[in-house]
Design a protein around this nucleic acid. Sequence first.
RNA 1: GGGCUCAUAGCUCAGUUGGUUAGAGCGUUUCCUUGACAUGGAAGAGGCCGGAGGUUCGAGUCCUCCUGGGCCCACCA
Length: 938
Amino acid sequence: MNEIPSRYNPKEVEEKWYKSWEENSYFSAKANPDKKPFCIVIPPPNVTGILHMGHALNNSIQDILIRYKRMKGYEALWMPGTDHAGIATQNVVEKKLVKEGKKRQDLGRDEFLKEVWKWRDEYGSTIIRQLKKLGASCDWERTRFTMDEAYSEAVLEVFIHLYKKGLIYRGLRIINWCPRCSTALSDEEAPYKDLEGQLYYIRYPFKSVSRLASESVSQFKQANRQTGKQANYIIVATTRPETMLGDTAVAVNPKDKRYKHLIGETLILPLIEREIKIIADNFVDPKFGTGAVKVTPAHDPNDYQMGIRHNLEAVNIMQTDGVLNSSAGEYSGMDRFEAREAVINDLKERKLLEKIEPYQHSVGHCYRCSTVIEPYLSCQWFVKMKPLAKTGIEAVKKGEIKFYPKRWTKIYLNWMGNIQDWCISRQIWWGHRLPVYYCKSCYKPQASGSKLQAEKEKPAACSLPPAADKGIVVSRIKPEKCPDCGSTEIYQDEDVLDTWFSSWLWPFATFGWPKVIPRNHEPRTTNHEPLNDLDYFYPTSVLVTAPEIIFFWVARMIMAGFEFMGKKPFSDVYIHGTVRDDTGKKMSKSLGNIIDPQEIINEYGSDALRFSIISLTSVGQDIFLSKNKFEYGRNFANKIWNASRFIITNLKPEDIKVDLCIYSKEIGGLAEKWILSQFYATLEKVEKAINQYRLNEAAKIIYEFFWHNFCDWYLEFSKLTIETSQTQAVLYKVLEKSLRIMHPFLPHISEEIWHNLPGVSTSIMKESYPHLQKQFISKLVDKQMQLLIDLISAIRNIRAEWRVGENMEVECILKITDKAAKKIIQENEACLKKLAKIAQVKIIEKVESFSGCASGIVGKVDFYIPLEKVIDLTKEKERLVKQVEALEVQLKGLKGRLTNKEFLKKAPQEVVEQEKVRADDYRKAIKRIKANLKALVR
RNA sequence: GGGCUCAUAGCUCAGUUGGUUAGAGCGUUUCCUUGACAUGGAAGAGGCCGGAGGUUCGAGUCCUCCUGGGCCCACCA
């Protein structure tokens, strides 16, 4: 009895059982035609990652679903793995090198990559170990990495496939450039943040005022007279004055009367002294700024488009590190922000700065290092997305793929409908290198800074394979010679692919595609032919992830799934909330507001962490955490522990095998029937909630049942009959089934207790989820038990009210005329006595004098407690009067409703009936309390 | 500029298709170390469900507007 400690110690228990599960391969899943598959692919964490609360939440959800389905008899596979996370990982390793006083360029590409692999081998499994601590039941033997050899095959296959299909092309575009990471980024990787900036108004002088037609001059002067502007310059407004060094035009709206006559005139670009023309373009909004826009085709996406339309020159003024280049004249060598200051100062000096206004605008930032991104003209590789998006849009519209909560559907469809081409080349070293080769002799790189006209003739979306530039070969392996000129001097593209270009293949590349090919659309030749995993597990069942990942990953997986498998990758997408601290800030390392899951696991246990975080997460809402919230789960685990301890130490193994069915109707005590009824009602609700991904609700239902029904009431009732075989059986069965219900949420403690039970199997993981047996659910039983519970509570209330200590012997007189109620009370008199601490129970049928008694009514029962010595009659009277008043308020409301003809006519009959019954109950109750009041005074 | 989301007890949040007396955890008050559990038990106090209209017999729940938080999207020079 004393072997089981009174406090649950999660630490050793959790480690012990996790090890045992792994050793017994309980997590492994195989294609099994006799079972239905259930599959989740893990959102692969970055190899650089350490487990944070977002992971804890994300993976707790997945583990609950997987463990639940496994127990429900599905072949449940949770496919694990990690992502090579190109930029993030490269940054981590570079930082490490910096500490050693080295730069990656010092090592060279090959040596650097060796360092990264070394780093990965050493630290890459950290997050996997942490997931194991959480209890994650992934099939670890299948663990994949996006840079695995087989996985890389998939990436190559996909690149080549899309290239041949004309969906991958190379082009000179304005892309998001991170000067710190020194690479191009996709639009998704450059989130915009509002910044307090400034709007600079700059004067661009005309080349020669005298050259203006006199008519133009007078018109211009007139137009500007109201604002007091001089006529020998035009004013442009910009937030990035340094980019003026690359200006090659000023644009105005062709309909703008102020400027119409000036179109075609020549200006002198200040500081650089370049001649630029005034052009007309509809893009220009006459209402913004001065209505005149400086045009910098190499440093702004809109200006770039204008450059193409007007055949302008694109002057690139910046190096890849954000330092200005030789095109920037005397500013060359300055950092972009330094140059901004210098340009402003020089303009001021020359009296060319009209004014500066504070201005709030959105600026793109690198999602890996938060550096302000630079719109930058460069030659990159892109995927044409519109053709790929089509099927993905239809599938979601048709409901073939469902989002939970539903509102994300719209967000997804909106993004997919406006999808932009995807920039997939990255100028870093860590990643899948582009399978693109160039011939040294006949390939001529495109020069930037040239006229932009060529770009006009880009092939339309989804045309034939791109007219390959001469000397370019896209190939799985390095070609021996150039197909154009036969030269053997061939070199590979230096760039690597966007990390997400490999992640979007995750739901099928993890199953060995393209080596493993889906064949389920072709009839199998024999029944004995083994199913391959791809056929069996794909499409997967549900994807569980965070909202910020919808565009990066979810949408792209859907597109890749249809393109390469011809099928959706998953049926459901469950989007959970973001983990924030208790002030609402997103938890992040840089903000220093993280709660480390490891610390919580060490202090409270992994089950406590899981149960707490799941309970706090309602579908689709963000979750606000503080450390003390984990006490919720810890306390619950301890409660389970102690309730189990009580049961186990009192269990007589010979009695536990009794079949419960015999208790369902006629045999068995009320409490036994009641707890069974409650249990199965709970089971039904829990399963319903899980199937709707309402895991917080499921957790709450379990908590409520186990703590407040099973422990608070049934265990207390059971103490009186614990020697009987029926109580023994019920205690055992309800505990054992409760553990099974709990297991997906609290895997470790449920397993530990499981092994302390007599007559159980090797592991709770091998058990099935309890089977719903509705015949046990009884509203009548619930109602009968409720009478006892309410009566006991009411008596306790009075004891507390009158400060009746437990050592004081108290009698209870019950006035019951209702036969059924009388039977219940009589049969459960012992429990009533014990739980309400009553020495004597007396049942009467007629009113007597109850002077000196505190009284109350519960259902059809009136009860009186003689408390002559402690009771204050005036106060007791007040108490009863208050009760009557409260009831009268209720009754008044009901009467109002019941005399309202509209209500009687329009409300459903059952509601009207119900209200009538209620009103009647209130009237009777008031009458009874009033009678008691009279008896008290007498 | 467009869209989403939230506002319910001192705090953090539940509340499924409109239908009794709006719930939980934490905190708080009183009592209790009783043979499962003080990481506990018993009994309380505490809410005009952000504001204003509307639909309805009936609104925390549906609609409109407003106020105040949070988030996302967009080629805001």
